[in-house]
Amino acid sequence: MKSIMLYALSTCPFCKMAKRFFESRGIAYNSVDVDLLPEEEKEKTVAEVQRISGRRAFPVIVIGEEVIVGYDELRIKEALEK
């Protein structure tokens, strides 16, 4: 089972759709609403998101080694099947 990390914002609909995608399929995943983190932790997490995705936009989904920027169901499915 690949580890899944979802970096999200509490205000972003595609982030909610990504959560629903995993939940509706019973796939275990970790997620964090970056905008709701305490300031210091937020900065650290945003820096990490920027390092792996090159952007400061959400969602960013990490499946195993693969980084998916934005909500792309096809790429999520492919990454899960790899």
Partner: peptide, 23 residues
């Protein structure tokens, strides 16, 4: 959902900032 999110951003941060961007 996006209009709602934009209004939430307005309430929290004072303007209609993109709901999917941190800055």
């Amino acid at each position: 959902p996006l209009i709602e999110a934009l209004l939430k951003k307005y309430e929290r941060y004072g303007d209609f900032y993109c709901p999917c961007k941190i800055d």
